[in-house]
Design a binder for these strands. Structure first.
Lengths: 325, 325
DNA sequence: GCTTGATATGTAACCGGTTACACATTAAGA
DNA sequence: TCTTAATGTGTAACCGGTTACATATCAAGC
């Protein structure tokens, strides 16, 4: 790899001049600029980012902290983040924490010592590591961290409500629900919205994490203890897939006997049989927004912390009866 | 953030001594060591990786180049890679290329200028960017790049064969197949193995990419043009899910009338109705192996390029008839 | 007592960029 | 013509580590 010194020599100028043409800063004569550009091309030079980082204390790296990329909600988010970051010349460092405080801590110091410019956090921290003391630009994504930290979330309350209303409007009268992990506020909102709109129609409810296995268990529990019901809202699409599978196993016809609505709008919903009706969050959009916001923060364009609440929408596939309205 | 100078001052020694105790190199007296350790603790110091990188020309970063993390095969791989990397003090930089040469090029120079220590490539490069001229340790994962570059792959040929044999052993006599993208050699092997073992029982075949939408189209085509058949092997689980959905839509009972086998063993297979029988690749294991191999390469433990071929196995869920054997 | 090697530690160069500062030249304005 | 500001360029300090090298002390061996 060529260095700036070699370029300078080749172009017959000093390193300062080379740096100036690269950064378009200060005064450079037309002649010098051309000579430098020629030398750069000839040597196929690209500046060493580590060296630049050291002086500038900025690495063009952003840290992405998530519970587990293996959870199908996250890849799309990661993709959006990476796309936007990349368009702006940033790279992203992937960190899976499994929501374990210790892993999170380890990553946090690693990211800090490598001088990442900012953080996107999609992990909860009810257990409160010292994000605040980190003094790094950061934005929370699909998570509410605390006032003073930017957040991008979707309107879970409205989503839950929309699910209940849809079920009811489609003729369901006995509603059931499988809630998500209690410690995730954004997920809890979905349950709250659903319960509000379901009112006395709610006949049963269980709880589950977002792993399919546990969702299956929770589904069985729901059927065992609360059957019959004719509409289910699951806190996310993975849980909904479990409900669907369990319904099939019990020879319950979907959507004729039982309508099911999920939440998230991940690709999985297309792949179930029948395809899943769901409340879609604008996942990619959320990732995009969060990243753009982070880059603004990094470039100090705005320091007023904001919470961005995005609308959700109903995607009717085939686990609900489409009613003419 | 504290610097080594501050630590040195606090401990009343020179920066060289501090560096020595941190790296356990050279001679350090017991007294000095203790003083330095105390100072490090007091100042909550951790060394600046950027500075270290600059001198050592090594960043403890590895680049992970994949087509699209959104494709459900990759998150598990990414997870394995990140786990192993992290255990060894490395972080991973995520790069989605969509198999576009241009994005790949851009990433390659970005990764190089930031002095990543190595690369894991899960992307094909029939279009041949200059990996060879990169002069970086790298290992190909689930891809065959070329001789001289390490590769970790699973035995697609045996997998395809196993699928055909299973279908046949379960009583199927008219087999069909949906192949994957032609340019992926590892995927082509599956088709070859299947065709070899299916022999004259093969009655129809179409082709598809790994996106669900196109897989659905390919499935419809298969049913439209080659029905009836009683066993299908899909080149991966996403395609198998599409076949399943299309079968349900056409009121074809699985597995009674039609048996389906997928390939990969991703979580999606658990979530379909009925759950998918599939040929599982040891995905996590492959990621783990590839990363360990890369770290060995980085630490120059071994320079003899190897190709590691991992065995696959049949996971019987409910889209095949389990036969007493 | 003198030589020698092991132990211990500090100084300064180095990694490859960026930029403050000094200095020179040129053009514009009075 | 003289002053002044704009333009152009190089030198060297700096970012925060690592390490080669110089130097010093001390104990062992003769």
């Amino acid at each position: 790899m060529a260095t700036i010194k070699q370029v300078a020599k080749q172009a017959n100028v000093s390193v300062a001049t080379v740096s100036r043409v690269m950064n378009k800063s200060g005064y450079v004569s037309e002649d010098a600029r051309e000579a430098v550009e020629r030398a750069i091309a000839e040597l196929n030079y690209s500046p060493n980012r580590v060296a630049r980082s050291l002086y500038k204390k900025s690495s063009n790296l952003i840290g992405l902290i998530m519970p587990d990329i293996t959870n199908p909600f996250f890849p799309q988010l990661a993709r959006a983040i990476e796309d936007v970051a990349n368009q702006h010349g940033y790279q992203v460092v992937l960190c899976n924490t499994d929501e374990q405080l210790e892993k999170e801590q380890t990553y946090l110091v690693a990211l800090q010592t490598m001088h990442v410019d900012g953080l996107i956090i999609t992990t909860n921290h009810s257990h409160n590591p010292n994000y605040e003391t980190l003094n790094l630009p950061m934005v929370a994504l699909d998570r509410i961290v605390k006032a003073g930290i930017d957040a991008v979330i979707s309107d879970g309350y409205e989503g839950g409500k929309l699910a209940a209303e849809t079920l009811l409007a489609n003729g369901a009268t006995r509603l059931a629900h499988i809630a998500g992990p209690e410690h995730l506020k954004t997920v809890k909102r979905r349950t709250e919205g659903f319960m509000e709109a379901a009112g006395e129609h709610l006949v049963g409810m269980t709880q589950s994490t977002f792993t399919f296995k546990e969702a299956l268990t929770a589904s069985q529990e729901l059927f065992d203890h609360h059957w019959p019901f004719d509409g289910v809202f699951a806190a996310n699409d993975v849980i909904a897939a479990a409900v669907l599978q369990e319904a099939v196993r019990r020879n319950i016809r979907v959507p004729e006997e039982l309508q099911v609505i999920g939440y998230d709008g991940i690709e999985l919903g297309e792949m179930t049989s029948p395809p899943l009706t769901t409340i879609v969050q604008p996942i990619y959009e959320m990732g995009r927004l969060a990243t753009e916001r982070l880059l603004d923060l990094i470039e100090k364009k705005d320091t007023q912390a904001k919470e961005m609440l995005l609308p959700v929408s109903l995607l009717e596939r085939q686990t609900t009866k489409r009613k003419e309205r």
